[in-house]
């Protein structure tokens, strides 16, 4: 997975912050944010996950005009999910999301233009009473800003389970 242009926009940050219940004005109030040391609106800590919006091939978004979507329509399922993961941040595209780690090198600000490149990391297997055989796989995504500076390193661990897990 590679993302050439992840435009970090204030309105997207506002919507993302709302969805995680964060009313902090640093995420939506430009006048407030300008007066802080950070000098402007910044992205919340897990915002990089929304780079999926900028991945043209992201598997967990219905494609415009064509290719079936596996969610319900007239029938309970439109299609079988594709085996090709290629997801952002190593999340649900690889099954369920088992772990997520972020390292922050520089604050991400509204107006930044990021690129992201993802490399596979380790993979391993484990037996579970609840879900059968578990296949874990790691992916490491590096986010760089318009000046080429590394801003975030994100490591996701996905897990494929043999059976549905209903805790």
């Amino acid at each position: 997975m590679a993302i050439d242009k992840f435009l970090v926009e204030a309105s997207h940050i506002m919507m993302f912050a709302r969805s995680v219940g964060d009313a902090n004005p640093i995420y939506h109030d430009e006048d407030y944010a300008k007066k802080t040391d950070l000098g402007g609106i910044i992205a919340p800590p897990t915002f990089a996950q929304s780079s999926a919006q900028f991945d043209p091939d992201y598997f967990l978004r219905p494609k415009i005009g064509g290719e079936g979507w596996f969610g319900s329509g007239k029938e309970a399922s439109g299609a079988k999910p594709s085996k090709d993961s290629g997801g952002s941040g190593g999340g649900a595209a690889m099954g369920l999301h088992a772990e997520q780690h972020f390292e922050y090198h520089k604050p991400v600000k509204a107006g930044d233009i990021l690129t992201a490149t993802t490399k596979p990391g380790n993979s391993w297997e484990k037996e579970s009473k609840r879900a059968g055989k578990l296949k874990f796989s790691e992916s490491v995504t590096e986010y760089r800003n318009q000046d080429g500076e590394l801003v975030i390193t994100a490591t996701g661990v996905g897990v494929q389970t043999e059976r549905a897990v209903d805790s």
Partner: peptide
Amino acid sequence: GASGDYNPLHTDEIF
């Protein structure tokens, strides 16, 4: 909607 992860497991009760 905000994250772009539209996996139906999160929003599609029927599926």
